[in-house]
């Protein structure tokens, strides 16, 4: 700022408007990504939609406390991870825990592939591979799955994953390496 420049305080209403605009931009920019992460984590469209909604509601309530230590995306993913954990914890208390009526089965989840310019045979092969990866992802522990999805679906760096999960980078690497070893073994297997 140039010496002698005068800064005028803005009114409370103007500050609110600025914050609301900023938050609206944040929602527009990151909502699809948060939804995608939650969809991959839960394989349940309705649940992913609800948790995404909750995530942005929570973010809106605490928007004033966001200090910018990490990127907004990392902060949002951290909220989403906590919401997902809370959801499973509360669900575990219920006796119908095992019923996952809304979650999409592996076959259906594996159907999704951009058609591109592949031949029918290539499409079939790709679908088989996707199905295998889904099968392995299902067997991963909660942390391994989160780290794996953030790395290979959301393309986050290890440092970003560490910030989002609250783990240190070494632990993230360890989880990722174990998850990848399982995926490698699963993909390599000829079933």
């Amino acid at each position: 700022m140039a010496a002698g420049a005068v800064t005028r305080p803005i009114s409370e209403q103007a500050a609110h408007t600025v914050a609301a605009d900023e938050f609206a931009r944040l929602v527009a920019a990151h909502r699809p990504q948060i939804f995608r992460f939650l969809l991959a984590s839960t394989r349940d469209v309705d649940l992913a939609e609800t948790l995404t909604q909750d995530c942005f509601l929570k973010a809106h309530l605490h928007w004033g406390q966001f200090r910018g230590d990490s990127t907004a995306m990392t902060w949002l993913i951290r909220i989403a991870i906590n919401l997902e954990k809370d959801h499973w914890r509360s669900r575990r208390l219920r006796f119908w825990r095992s019923t996952q009526a809304n979650s999409v089965d592996l076959d259906e989840a594996s159907e999704w592939l951009p058609s591109g310019e592949r031949s029918a045979e290539q499409q079939l092969l790709a679908r088989e591979q996707v199905k295998k990866v889904w099968k392995i992802v299902e067997t991963l522990s909660g942390r391994q799955r989160t780290v794996f999805l953030l790395r290979y679906v959301e393309d986050l760096e290890l440092s970003e994953i560490a910030l989002a999960t609250g783990l240190n980078e070494g632990t993230v690497k360890a989880h990722l390496s174990r998850a990848l070893a399982k995926v490698r073994a699963g993909v390599g297997s000829r079933v």
Binding site: P114, V133, V153
Partner: peptide, 25 residues
């Protein structure tokens, strides 16, 4: 070859999740 297959599988998985998410979103 195994490494190529793994990368291919991870790539397809990523594309699949993106396509599914985009469609549902």
């Amino acid at each position: 070859a195994e490494e190529v297959e793994l990368r291919q599988a991870l790539g397809h998985f990523r594309q699949s999740v993106h396509a599914w998410s985009d469609a549902e979103y």
